[in-house]
Amino acid sequence: MKLVIDSDRCKGCNLCMLVCPYRIFKEGKDQNERGIIIPELDRPERCPNCRLQRLYGRTVCGLCQMICPDQAIRWDDEKENEPQKVVIEF
């Protein structure tokens, strides 16, 4: 599964940056059409929830989603044939 930030909901508070143990959220640079700077994702495929939520049948970690005050973080299914990089970090 794929981590995404809903750009219609995100208000750019950067709280997700604060909690992610993998530092997946990075301060964004560009304003979107609503004038909001949305965090950028740094190799989101590292997020354990992307890889493991199907397997475990529950949200794994999920801190960013819980703290996001604007319900902007979710995991989408990949499109068919979308290449998925799996990076294991030690």
């Binding site: 709280l15 819980m66 005050p69 604007d70 319900q71």
Partner: peptide, 15 residues
Amino acid sequence: PTIYCVGCGNGTVIN
């Protein structure tokens, strides 16, 4: 989205 300001903690508490 809610009427809350950017970074308001209320959204987190609702979650």
